[in-house]
Design a protein around this nucleic acid. Structure first.
Length: 581
DNA sequence: GCCGTTTTCGGCCCGACTGTTTTCAGTCG
């Protein structure tokens, strides 16, 4: 059983224990253990084999033995027993808004409910409202929650969330009574998938701002409204929360609502260790609960909060408690990539395969947005569903590209299209022979038809990396966010192979992919693997993925140096040739 | 269930909101 599967089981054990009414600190220990695994950078089997599980944060005797059992036998009797003792429907009930473990227990014990459908029926005939601790409103809220779940997904891809959030942020910024405003939460941390949108505003007239917010276009319904905060459901089913604070509180509220929860816990602990107290209202010189302004450590910005806790500023993307504190203490945080440093994309399509733009339009668009180069890497022939090119059509395409480049040269501009291919990784090698690949400036190798076996996919990717004509591996896991899981592959082995062979790995910035995942980049870069942030553009507006992908690269601790498409065209050409040499 | 230059036992981050309550439990972030 692999790392992610084991982590998911630990998480589930935590939830199951909660439903059984276990000690909350015990349940938390399991979810801490799961998180610890998720950020593990070396192979889990290796850790187990070398008896080093105890090195993981939050891993004591019990977790070590349970995880070792899962990894070596693929099963865990304790977990199986636990699962049997809790009806599966209870886990589903838990995901309804306003329903937590205590209420699920009550619904189960008092009414004998074991499924969401049964819960819905119980709400309809009033049995839920009659329970102690429930009432008409909670019953109604549960019904609405069930209906909402059926209509909308509860998680949203980052690009979709940004598209909704940015106009709202602009609207808030334009309000005359708004002093400062920002997005917060997982959106500001640039998580690839977000649950809801968070906004923080400072103002002297919170009621006006809240009125304005709940009446913005796109607000479908108002799910909560108090003196300082409001929650709304937007068109498409995304929930958005706004918190309005005094301007002196703004940096504290912004840091607090940006999270992550795990990051905030460490921040508070650092405050406590210095005899201070940190919350969303301020940093106070008192261990007691207080909002006494006389005891406030004044901070105008988030930067000053970090300084007060002896840290350098931690960019929002890094606030996951995955090593940022160790680095920020010693002022050794990396200088993260900026998306404006990107000079082009090295994996893109045109109408020659499954893209929507002609070569001329591809070039014009890339030039227009200020890129120095743009590679055309249409599919190879085995991707027949995508109208992949055979050798003859590829040769024609090279001539067409040469003609377009000539016209840019004649016009005195330095912009160039680069020739290339997204060559299929097949069972027994690549879809083009080496002598064809050798004629192309950029070769991306991608696995489009994976095997069922992890070892087989790993073997194919490593073999592709070992080919001197392959510059980079494309979308190395094949995942589609919220739609399709990664194919099974041993990424550690693939990353090692890329480090050894000098093969770059793509960060595919398509809004559905964001693949390779940000969690792998820090360790990959340490091993010397270079990143390329590619749009995998099929349409003109996909050029915008550069910004999306750069944010994911930042989340993976990458700097300008780590990313090859920050290079100028001459530098890039030199690097492309280096692999072949 | 985990953890320890205060501790191997007794803690474990913290506050707001909601709904059901006359003082608070549960949920959420």
């Amino acid at each position: 059983m692999n790392r992610d599967e084991v982590a998911a089981i630990l998480e589930e054990i935590g939830v199951l224990l909660e439903l059984k009414g276990e000690n909350p600190f015990k349940t938390r220990a399991y979810s801490t253990g799961a998180r610890s695994l998720e950020s593990l950078e070396e192979p889990l089997e290796k850790l187990v084999a070398e008896n080093r599980l105890g090195e993981l944060k939050g891993f004591g005797e019990a977790l070590q033995s349970k995880v070792a059992t899962l990894v070596t036998t693929g099963t865990l009797p304790y977990y199986e027993e636990l699962k049997k003792s809790v009806p599966a429907g209870l886990l589903e009930m838990l995901r309804l808004p306003g329903v937590g473990p205590k209420k699920v227990r009550k619904l189960h014990q008092e009414l004998g409910l074991t499924t969401v459908d049964a819960l819905e029926a119980a709400c309809r005939d009033g049995r839920v409202a009659a329970l102690d601790g429930f009432g008409e409103k909670s019953q109604q809220k549960i019904l609405e929650g069930i209906a909402f779940r059926r209509q909308f997904a509860s998680r949203h891809r980052l690009a979709q969330a940004l598209a909704v959030a940015e106009p709202i942020l602009d609207a808030l910024r334009s309000h005359p009574e708004v002093l400062r405003c920002s997005t917060a939460g997982s959106l500001r941390r640039w998580k690839e998938v977000v649950g809801d949108l968070d906004f923080v505003v400072s103002s002297k007239t919170p009621a006006d701002i809240l009125d304005f917010f709940v009446s913005l276009p796109g607000v479908e319904s108002i799910s909560g409204r108090g003196d300082t905060k409001a929650s709304v459901i937007l068109t498409g089913g995304i929930q958005a929360d706004l918190r309005v604070v005094a301007d002196s509180e703004f940096p504290f509220a912004l840091a607090y609502f940006t999270g992550s929860k795990e990051h905030n816990i460490v921040m508070r602990q650092r405050a406590i260790a210095r005899g201070l107290r940190l919350n969303e209202y301020g940093l106070f010189r008192s261990a007691e609960e207080t909002r006494d302004p006389a005891k406030l450590v004044r901070c105008q910005t988030e930067d000053e909060i970090f300084r007060a806790l002896d840290l350098e500023f931690i960019p929002p993307e890094l606030r996951e408690d995955l090593g940022e504190f160790v680095a920020a203490e010693s002022a050794s945080l990396p200088r993260l990539l900026e998306w404006t440093q990107l000079k082009g994309s090295l994996h893109n399509h045109s109408t020659w395969s499954d893209g929507r733009q002609s070569l001329e339009d591809v070039a014009a668009r890339a030039h227009e947005i200020g890129c120095a180069y743009w590679a055309v890497t249409d599919h190879s022939k085995s991707s027949f569903q995508a109208n992949g090119l055979d050798v003859a059509r590829l040769r024609q395409q090279l001539q067409a590209i040469a003609a377009i480049n000539q016209s840019y040269q004649d016009a005195g501009t330095d912009f160039r299209l680069l020739t290339g291919t997204e060559v299929d990784i097949l069972k027994d090698g690549l879809d083009f022979p080496d002598e064809v690949l050798a004629q192309l400036e950029v070769v991306v190798a991608s696995l489009h038809v994976p095997a069922r076996e992890e070892a087989e996919n790993t073997r194919r990717l490593i073999r592709a990396a070992q080919n001197p004509y392959v510059h980079m591996l494309g979308h190395p896991t094949g995942r589609l966010l919220l739609e399709r899981d990664a194919y099974p592959v041993d990424l550690h082995a693939v990353i090692e192979a890329c480090a050894e062979t000098g093969t770059w790995i793509e960060l595919n910035a398509s809004s559905y992919r964001l693949d390779l995942d940000w969690r792998f980049w820090r360790s990959a870069a340490r091993k010397g693997v270079r990143c390329v942030i590619n749009c995998d553009a099929h349409r003109a507006d996909h050029a915008g993925f550069l910004r999306l992908g750069a944010g994911i690269a930042r989340k993976g601790w990458l700097t300008r140096d780590d990313v090859m498409n920050t290079r100028s065209l001459p530098e890039l050409r030199q690097a492309l040739n280096a692999k072949r040499a």
